[in-house]
Write a protein that binds this DNA or RNA. Structure first.
Lengths: 110, 110
DNA sequence: TTGACATATTCCCATATGGGTATATGTTGA
DNA sequence: TCAACATATACCCATATGGGAATATGTCAA
């Protein structure tokens, strides 16, 4: 087996920095592909391809508007990532780190 | 160019579900490789290889203990992910969603 | 010193990636 | 109907993946 598909889930889709850039732009509002192309300064096919991945994992929604395709962020698809990482928040909180270490010390003492 | 290396950053390292499993186990405390192998039920080389990736992006720290290598979580390396995703929290918060839509409606009205 | 133990590394392979470039599809206005 | 426009898809390629299996490296205990 090879690496999981980028379209496997939000985790994989978002691992690509360029796709995060797209999401960051869309976070400010709906945009047609061409605006993304302009603002990002990439080749149009690249943008379309990344959008396709984002679409497949439900991170963006598409709406037709004449010859334009309007893309909109669907941040809800990011929730699984947030939910997972939330449990680690305390890890980089120095105060709680100290507590953890104390707990660890007490635990290994027995 | 191909896909970014899994060792490129925490985003890529954590995109692999199995590596998240490892981190979840280590979140409860330091463990030697063999305990991970047992608890996960995978082949030992696979565990070692995933640990190597996690080490390279700084998600785990290693300590030698006789013939054992003790692995410990370094959650701080997850902070960049948390920081990025935090800005999207409001997206799945229904109440704020409504506010966003209102703002959007007002904006497009002009 | 030797053998068992703990872990890491190497090799092989099928697979999908993301960029580049060219082209297809679909839409609009004249 | 046709040309310009907006977007998507197809093709080619170098690359690294993750699993499986075999093996190397390092450490301890007798």
């Amino acid at each position: 087996m090879a690496r999981a598909a980028t379209t496997a889930d939000a985790f994989n889709a978002v691992a690509e920095p360029r796709r995060r850039e797209i999401l960051d732009l869309l976070a400010e509002g709906e945009l047609p592909v061409n605006d993304l192309v302009t603002q990002l300064g990439w080749a149009q096919p690249q943008v379309s391809k990344h959008l396709r991945v984002l679409r497949k994992v439900g991170l963006v929604d598409q709406r037709e508007n004449g010859r334009q395709r309007m893309y909109r962020l669907n941040g809800r698809a990011l929730k699984p990532i947030h939910d997972w990482i939330k449990n680690y928040e305390r890890t980089w909180n120095e105060r709680l780190d100290a507590l953890d270490e104390l707990a660890h010390a007490l635990k290994t003492e027995e």
